[in-house]
Design a protein around this nucleic acid. Structure first.
Lengths: 193, 193
DNA sequence: ATTCGTTCTTGATGTAGGTCAATGGTGACC
DNA sequence: GGTCACCATTGACCTACATCAAGAACGAAT
């Protein structure tokens, strides 16, 4: 299972055998069944997770009892509560598996070890932070200004592979609309063509 | 002007005289008149900025020609295009001054120097990244799920000092509503009491 | 003092998308 | 194979907010 993480890393930088030893000694593996939780809101956060296979999501429940999906994490994505990995912090999200999943857990110690010993990791991590921040800014602006249909189309373009895999009420929850609206948008668009 | 930055730092960690020398040799000062730009969309980004005095904002213009404010930065805040400071990247935002402002510029080299020589800075920077990421997540969820009035009230609570200083059409732009809506919300609330 | 620009207010009307409710499809489990 | 959840669809109606338009209040510039 670490092999998947290795080849993920090797898309950005090369790993020596020694690096691989460090990584596998410092991280741990876990399997999640569909529906199983990695963390619940309010629990103490210990790990960030890399999805080797499967599909996770993070979400919050607002004061009206409604779920709002914050992030999808299909294969080869990282998911964590805060940006990066911290420790002793209360989780603000729920994170659970949408499909049976194999994940790799990274705690703060592991993160720090990799940061100090594997420069490529540090660079990748920093770049990831920036990319995510930019994506969040874009999502904020979009959710404030774009129509439901625009957001839907944008999601299709940006994450075509995700659309296939999530039930559409989850897509609705991510986009901040009702499932009915997604249904109507799809109908409209199929008629247009 | 560096004094303001120093005391900002010293709220989190202590600075030696040597640290202060490093900092002031590596950063630069600048004044902006109200309305002046620090950067425009598409320009090459060189600096993150610390607002010593005054008020900046960042915003985008969408394809319908509408402005959307991404961030406000009053005294003692940082503002930058991406999370953190990078170089040779095209700006995705406009950043300009809402009031006459004194700012301190930090380029990538300065950032790296401080990261390597001043551990307190590194810690503060990391913590800042996390706080911002969490704030953005909250804003995303809010903008997808809360009503205009809820978002307005939340902004009042979270940033009471900012509300005083920005014209309300900018507040509207930040919240993703029209100025008319803000006006009506205010009227409603003043009647209630 | 007067003009002008800018911001804020208020009203009338339109519309995107939410809510509610009924119906049909589909897969899991006994 | 039938029952039972769960999910998507569709329609009728409603509401929050946008849009458009017309003043009012304020300060800055001449």
């Amino acid at each position: 299972m670490f092999e998947i993480l290795f080849s993920y890393f090797e898309k950005s930088f090369s790993l020596s055998e020694a690096d691989k030893v460090i990584i596998s000694s410092v991280l741990s593996e876990r399997k999640l069944k569909k529906g199983e939780f990695l963390q619940r809101e309010g629990e103490i956060v210990r790990y960030g997770a890399f999805v080797a296979k499967g599909f996770l999501r993070s979400y919050v429940i607002d004061n009206k009892g409604k779920e709002h999906i914050v992030q999808f994490a299909p294969d080869n994505w990282w998911i964590s509560d805060k940006a990066g990995i911290s420790e002793g912090i209360k989780a603000s999200f729920f994170i659970d598996a949408i499909e049976d999943s194999d994940i790799i857990l990274c705690d703060l110690a592991g993160h720090l070890t990799m940061m100090s010993k594997i420069p490529g990791y540090t660079a990748l991590f920093q770049a990831g932070i920036q990319k995510r921040a930019a994506a969040k800014d874009k999502r904020i602006v979009h959710s404030l200004s774009a129509t439901a249909e625009e957001r839907y189309n944008d999601f299709l373009e940006t994450y075509p592979s995700i659309v296939q895999r999530v039930p559409q009420h989850m897509l609705a929850s991510y986009l901040g609309v009702t499932p009915e609206t997604i249904s109507r948008i799809r109908k409209l668009q199929s008629q247009k063509k």
